[in-house]
Simulated scan of single mutants.
Amino acid sequence: MKLHWSPKSPFVRKVMVCAHELDVAGQLTLVRSVAAMLKPNLQLMADNPLSKIPTLMLDDGRTLFDSVVICEYLDHLAGGSLFPREGDARWRALRWHALGNGLLDVLILWRNEREREVPLGALQDAFALKTEASLMLLEQEVEMLAKAPLSIGHVAIGCALGYTDYRFASLEWRSRAPQLTHWFAELSKRPSFVATEVAEG
Rank of each mutant, 00 (worst) to 15 (best):
V34A: 15
P54N: 06
W5G: 02
E72C: 05
P149T: 12
E115I: 10
E143F: 09
D66K: 00
I70F: 00
G100H: 08
Y163V: 00
R111Q: 07
L56V: 12
V12G: 12
L22Y: 01
D23S: 06
A122G: 07
L120D: 15
R190K: 12
K8M: 13
P10H: 07
V118N: 14
K147A: 14
R62Y: 03
C18S: 14
D60F: 01
H182W: 10
Q27F: 11
C18D: 05
V198W: 06
P54H: 06
V118M: 12
G153P: 02
V194P: 00
Q140S: 13
V69M: 03
E21M: 15
V15S: 07
A156S: 15
A89H: 04
F11N: 13
P178N: 02
V198N: 05
S188Q: 04
R111N: 12
S151K: 10
K2M: 07
S151R: 07
L74C: 09
W110F: 07
L187V: 09
D165C: 03
S33L: 01
V198T: 14
L38M: 12
E21R: 11
P49S: 01
F11T: 15
K189F: 10
E86C: 02
L180F: 05
L150T: 09
N101L: 12
V69E: 14
I152H: 10
E86V: 04
E132Q: 08
V34F: 15
L58Q: 12
W96K: 10
S188N: 10
G26E: 08
V34Y: 13
V155G: 00
P40Q: 04
S170I: 03
L28I: 02
K189A: 09
F11Y: 14
V155E: 09
G79R: 03
T164H: 12
R62G: 05
Q124R: 13
R174G: 09
A133K: 13
P149F: 05
A46F: 09
D88Y: 10
S170C: 06
A93V: 11
W91L: 08
P191R: 07
V24Y: 09
C71F: 03
R95G: 01
T181Q: 00
Q27V: 13
L82M: 06
Y73K: 11
A133W: 12
G153Q: 05
L30E: 01
R85V: 04
S151L: 01
G102A: 00
L44G: 04
S134Q: 06
H97E: 11
T29P: 10
V142C: 14
G162A: 14
S67C: 08
A177T: 02
P40M: 08
K189R: 13
C71E: 14
P40Y: 01
T164P: 06
P84D: 13
T196S: 06
